[in-house]
Amino acid sequence: MSDKANLPALTKQVSELVLAGSLQHAEEAFSQAADEHGDYAVVEVLSTLPPQVTALHLAGFDGAKTSLATMLVPPKAWADSLAYLAATWPDNMIEDDPERLAEGLFNHVHGVVYANDDEDRRHELLQEASSTDHGATVFAIIWSLAPKEIMEVAGEINLKGRYVTGQTSSDSDIIPLAVDLAKATEDGWERSLIELFPDFRHSAEMADAEYPDDPDEDPDFQQRGTRELLYRLRKQVPSVRTMPRRSTRKSMGSDIFS
Score class of each variant (00 low, 15 high):
K12G: 02
L125Y: 04
T242M: 14
E152A: 00
T226N: 09
D133E: 15
L105K: 02
L58P: 10
N107S: 15
K12W: 00
Y114T: 11
E124L: 11
E95F: 14
H57G: 12
L177S: 03
P212V: 02
D91E: 11
S47K: 14
E152H: 01
G166V: 01
R201L: 10
E152Q: 10
K148D: 12
T242S: 15
P8L: 03
D96Q: 15
E195A: 13
V14D: 03
H108V: 02
E195Q: 14
T54W: 00
F257I: 02
A5I: 06
I141T: 06
S144D: 08
R246Y: 00
T70Q: 14
V109E: 10
K12M: 02
Y84C: 08
V138D: 01
K160T: 10
R121V: 12
Y84W: 11
L230G: 06
P215V: 06
Q24P: 00
D216H: 09
P176F: 06
E228S: 09
F139Q: 05
I150K: 03
L72K: 06
A55S: 12
S2L: 07
F61L: 07
D133T: 14
M1E: 03
T88F: 08
E190F: 00
E210H: 05
M206V: 07
T137K: 06
L181E: 09
A26F: 03
L49R: 05
P176A: 05
S81E: 13
A207K: 15
P50V: 01
I142S: 06
L196E: 09
H110C: 11
D218M: 03
E28V: 07
L181N: 04
V43G: 02
S22T: 13
P50T: 04
H25L: 11
D117C: 13
A20I: 01
S130L: 04
V43Y: 01
D117E: 15
G21I: 08
L126K: 07
K148E: 13
F139H: 13
I175E: 05
A34S: 13
A184G: 14
V109H: 05
S131Y: 04
Q236R: 15
A9D: 11
P215A: 04
N92A: 10
W143R: 10
D213G: 13
L49M: 07
P238W: 02
L17Y: 07
Y211R: 00
L72F: 03
D133W: 02
N158H: 03
H57L: 15
A77E: 07
A79Y: 02
D35F: 05
V18T: 06
I194P: 12
S192C: 05
T226F: 09
E128P: 09
M243R: 11
A20N: 13
G104K: 09
L159V: 12
V237C: 14
P90G: 14
E27G: 10
G21K: 11
A59T: 04
L101Y: 09
M151H: 04
L19T: 12
S170E: 05
T248C: 02
K160W: 11
Q167M: 01
K160N: 13
L82K: 12
L17T: 07
